[in-house]
């Protein structure tokens, strides 16, 4: 048996786990620069995680097994998704496990349990976070599916590795439909990963937080796992976007030599995407909760226009 794909798989998961905090560190550093503050450096997220892992857990009195199970589950779904989304190579043994729709559902199962954990402790904050998170998710999902649909029209597949493969073989060119889908995807990714203007990852102001409200009662290694999973989610959404729209750099089938090159390109892409995220986040203010229907409605509109223009114009 050819051991190569297995090694790539391991390497890719390791890349995800190791690099995700650095990416968040990079985004935070850029943000500090953009706002004229001194940054804590690229490695601050690692230090935060390390600190959290070494701390004791303060468990709310009312917490059931769901509260304790959720961090592990969320971490698990992210790692599994990292084994499927092509980051370094498309030669992944796990790739056929899931197409894009399944990956979206994998994220959804993490969200489902996080929302339950928010309800578990019986505070107003937890319920508020859960309620809002589920509302945003239900508006983001149709737009997400429409964007996926548009991409799958152009590439005749919903499997990420296959989409990358088709783009490599030159059967797909830059079309209006794909650029609409890309714009829609960016908006949805901002919503799904809880960035400004949908949610503010660094706020702990009671009335505006969404994701933070759900995980307010977590501490110690539980919190560390949830935080780490959140970083991986951001990383994975960037990688998913890359695989769908700009896969160049990911190693094609059976090409071992391209792996180091892929690593470098991945790092470069992350660097650029960090700049994009920060410019969006500094350029926009957080929206009111009920303005989000318009934001996500715009995402849906863009994705739908993508689908329509595939049929009308391409």
């Amino acid at each position: 048996m050819n051991p190569y794909p297995l090694i790539v798989e391991m390497l890719q998961i390791a890349t995800l786990i190791v690099l995700a905090p650095a990416f968040v560190g990079w985004v935070r550093t850029l943000k500090c620069w953009a706002q004229g503050r001194t940054s804590a450096g690229l490695f601050q997220p690692y230090r935060d995680l390390d600190k959290l892992f070494s701390k004791d857990i303060l468990l709310p009195e009312n917490a059931s097994w769901i509260f304790r199970f959720t961090p592990y589950l969320v971490f698990g779904t992210m790692v599994l998704a990292g084994g499927i989304i092509p980051i370094l190579s498309i030669d992944l043994p796990l790739a056929p496990t899931a197409d894009v729709i399944v990956i979206v559902a994998l994220f959804a199962i993490g969200r489902f349990f996080t929302a339950l954990a928010g309800m578990d402790i019986g505070t107003a904050f937890g319920g508020m976070g859960s309620s809002r998170e589920m509302m945003i998710a239900s508006l983001a999902e149709p737009a997400m599916l429409m964007a996926i649909f548009t991409v799958s029209l152009a590439n005749k597949s919903t499997s990420l590795s296959q989409i990358v493969h088709v783009i490599y073989s030159g059967q797909s060119v830059l079309r209006p439909s794909l650029s609409f889908a890309l714009l829609a995807f960016i908006l949805i990714a901002l919503a799904e990963t809880g960035r400004i203007p949908v949610d503010n990852p660094s706020t702990h102001l009671e009335l505006t937080m969404i994701h933070e409200a759900m995980i307010l009662e977590y501490s110690g290694r539980h919190l560390a796992l949830i935080e780490w999973a959140g970083m991986m989610k951001l990383f994975l959404f960037v990688m998913m976007g890359m695989a769908l729209f700009a896969p160049w750099g990911i190693a094609p089938r059976g090409d071992i030599a391209a792996i180091p090159y892929a690593l470098v390109i991945t790092a470069l892409k992350l660097g650029v995407m960090g700049i994009v995220i920060v410019s969006i986040e500094t350029g926009l203010a957080k929206m009111r909760l009920f303005r989000l229907t318009e934001f996500l409605g715009a995402a849906f509109l863009l994705a739908t226009l993508g689908m329509l223009s595939y049929f009308i114009l391409d």
Partner: peptide, 23 residues
């Protein structure tokens, strides 16, 4: 495809509803 989007909406709302029901 619009139907597919509606189905996605349904699925996500169902998840919201069962977070509520169970929670």
């Amino acid at each position: 495809p619009m139907g597919a989007a509606l189905l996605a909406l349904t699925g996500a709302l169902a998840a919201a509803c069962f977070v509520k029901a169970f929670g």
